[in-house]
């Protein structure tokens, strides 16, 4: 053991330089990476109409936020987004749990073929099918409703896949024990499988919330009123450069839009990153 410490001491110099360079590189990249956000936060606090020289002498002001809040029904957009995200998540949890359970624990003819079809949906993006999905949603009378925005995302292939994996890793003995105590299939699902997959549910929920909070193209197409429009669509209508709104005001609107999710992220950082990690491993 003694020789170990000696070698460690003699080679101390070289890895140190490496480490310093590593840290330096990592920090510089980190600062570059969040600089757009920092600049926007700073710009949002500048008096509107001032030339945005990198001039730090101007007094900071909240007038942009006050103006933006008054100019657009943000409260409504915010509520719409929350309703939309909740609705999609609820639908996904129910549908994907049932389907994931079916694919994990039941044998039926054609199961594997159907499962490959499900996986294929990972590649048939809802975003690409906008033309036809728009027609379908309109025919169902769901144009400009939260359900119309949410329905195409509820049977998520990704969710089914994740939960199937999670359910498959549950030891069959647990299920048999519950069976002996007289649980029905639904009882087994609810009392054994769902609790065992809790971390996967959390991970999937966070990913789903972040995805649909940020989704834009599809909601843009199937909404046309402030009563259903989510935040992203509201922001795009507000922030278009040709409206002549200046950059301080756009920054304030942007900061307001991203603030809730950003704050949630900063508070639950660890869980968020863990969630994305878990959802990504397959």
């Amino acid at each position: 053991m003694k020789t170990d410490t000696v070698t460690a001491n003699t080679t101390l110099k070289l890895p140190d330089l490496d480490k310093v360079l590593d840290a330096l590189g990592a920090w510089v990249l980190a600062i570059v990476w969040i600089s757009p956000l920092l600049f926007a936060a700073w710009a949002a606090l500048q008096p509107s109409g001032t030339v945005l020289g990198l001039d730090f002498s101007n007094p900071l002001t909240f007038e942009n936020f006050v103006y933006v809040w008054g100019a657009v029904p943000w409260g409504g957009y915010f509520t719409n987004t929350v309703i939309l995200v909740t609705l999609i998540l609820a639908g996904q949890l129910v549908l994907c749990t049932l389907a994931g359970f079916a694919f994990a624990r039941f044998e039926f003819k054609g199961r594997d073929t159907v499962f490959i079809l499900v996986l294929l949906q990972l590649f048939i993006l809802p975003e690409v099918l906008i033309v036809e999905n728009y027609a379908i949603v309109s025919k169902l009378g769901l144009f400009d409703t939260a359900l119309g925005i949410g329905l195409p995302y509820m049977a998520s292939a990704f969710g089914i896949f994740l939960l199937r994996q999670a359910f498959k890793s549950v030891p069959i003995e647990l299920e048999e024990a519950a069976r002996i105590e007289g649980c029905s299939w639904m009882g087994v699902l609810w009392k054994v499988y769902v609790p065992a997959a809790k971390p996967v549910y959390l991970a999937y929920a966070l990913v789903s919330i972040a995805t649909h909070w940020n989704n834009f193209l599809w909601p843009l197409i199937v909404t046309n009123s402030p009563e259903t429009r989510p935040l992203t669509v509201g922001l795009s209508l507000f922030g278009a450069p040709e409206t002549g709104v200046d950059i301080s005001v756009i920054s304030a609107a942007t900061i307001m839009t991203i603030a809730p999710l950003l704050m949630a992220f900063l508070i639950f950082q660890r869980q968020f990153i863990q969630a994305f990690l878990r959802a990504g491993i397959r």
């Binding site: 757009p36 956000l37 989704n215």
Partner: peptide, 11 residues
């Protein structure tokens, strides 16, 4: 990653 693309564009 957690920002909407629309917001990223504004930034």
């Amino acid at each position: 990653t957690i920002l909407p693309m629309i917001a990223a564009a504004n930034l």
